[in-house]
Amino acid sequence: MPEITIDGQKIEFNQGMTILEAARSRGGDLVPPTMCYYSKLKDTGGYCRTCIVKVEAESVKNPRALPKPVASCRTLAQDGMVVKNQTSPEVLEARAGVVEFLLINHPLDCPVCDQAGECSLQDLGYEHGKMDTRYEFKRREFEQRDIGDKIKLHMNRCILCYRCVKTAEQITDGRVHGVCSRGDVAEISTYIEQAIDNDFSGNVIDVCPVGALTDKTFRFKNRVWFTKPVDAHRDCQKCCGKVRLWYKGEDILRVTARKDLYGEVENWICNECRFEKKKTAEWVIEGPSKVDRHSVVSANHYLAPEMKNDLSKLILNPDAGNNAGSSPLSKEQE
């Protein structure tokens, strides 16, 4: 089996896998962060440049180093390839640069953003960004828009990952939205103010890594870290019906698809399940969701390092810190 070395670890992979896929097959710190790549969709990735890595040797046959860092999500792994991710200061510096670029025009309105707490950009900013911004100009601004009666487009927050465009293209019939204009005024837009209207359009909310596309039935209802995720299913004619319900007390505030370790949707769900079934009686409850994903809030990232050390002594179960909804912070707030 071919073998690739990432940050000194040898990983066996199947021919045709990208560097990122090979890294994910091992897991852990050597996995580069991603913003635009989405394993459930075809042809995603390559745009955000957060997953760039340094290739020290291309392959057994051609052991030369590549002159430029490459996007790991789009570069095929090769036998004998040697890749540096975490271990290359050059990569970390470049990645910090990408984070800065992604944030200069981002409104940083996390306190009023529904995505806060499960936002990939928050995670990325915390883990790979710098404390300060050097940007001192006016940020670009767009009007907020409704695309359909259930979806809000908040273009200011968009990082142009193209995920929603690819989702619409690949899982729905006839995409009616896309990217208009170019450069830093490029925007997600519908075809002449057309509403996005089909049974699976709601999935664009789930694939959006930031708060640019939000669920209007959940907007401003609650912070995500105050809600409890529960896995449930129902017999649906249109989709698999396997969803995640987000409870506040007895009420279902929101329905989303189930997401995996990397925050990617496991099964696409239809709009009926997502927007209209908000009564417990309509669902068969499976039990609390196991959320492995470390969001900024659930992992106490917002605390200063010294505070985090103090708190960690209080945590009896060391795995608790990785569970959304069961971290000390959310316990206190409950």
Binding site: Y47, R49, F101, L102, G183, D184
Partner: peptide, 18 residues
């Protein structure tokens, strides 16, 4: 270059304007 950046990848989209 700011005007002509296609806006696809982040360093060029944001950096040229900056």
């Amino acid at each position: 270059y700011h005007h002509e950046s296609c806006g696809q990848c982040s360093p060029c989209r944001e950096g040229t304007g900056w």
